[in-house]
């Protein structure tokens, strides 16, 4: 019983940090398939702060998409990874979108 109490206390102490939940990680196609050195890494992230289910910002995914597009205005973005996660908090939470990809500049 003492061991179990110690294990539970240790596990409880582990939970006192900032907690997160990753809901989904998706990776797009690699088309055209090029090596990492042929392109430039691009990244865009946006957040949505929510208090008890109420929020004013409902465009954060669109904003991440636009930011990623602006990082590679004339090229092709391939191998896009999209991560949707939430940072949990006290009666509030923050939804996060992280998009990363490889920007291939146009030839010529």
């Amino acid at each position: 019983m003492k061991t179990a109490a110690l294990f539970l206390t240790a596990a409880l102490l582990m939970t006192t940090g900032c907690a997160h939940s990753i809901h989904e990680v998706h990776v797009s196609d690699f088309n055209p398939g090029r090596s990492l050195k042929d392109g430039r890494r691009v990244k865009a992230s946006t957040e949505q702060f929510v208090v008890l289910g109420f929020t004013g910002n409902t465009d954060y995914v669109d904003d991440a998409y636009k930011k990623l597009m602006s990082e590679c205005p004339t090229g092709v973005i391939t191998g896009i990874t999209t991560q949707f996660s939430t940072s949990l908090g006290f009666f509030s939470w923050t939804n996060k979108i992280l998009m990363q990809g490889l920007c291939l500049a146009p030839k010529g």
Binding site: A19, S21, G79, Q83, L88, S92, N95
Partner: peptide
């Protein structure tokens, strides 16, 4: 009390690093 500090939508149990899947593109390459 600790659970009150972990409010929000969840998939599975909460984790203490949100960066564990960030290197996916590098891992593919």
């Amino acid at each position: 009390i600790i659970a009150l500090f972990q409010m929000g939508p969840r998939t599975g149990n909460p984790v203490y690093s949100e960066r564990y899947a960030e290197r996916l593109l590098d891992r593919i390459y």
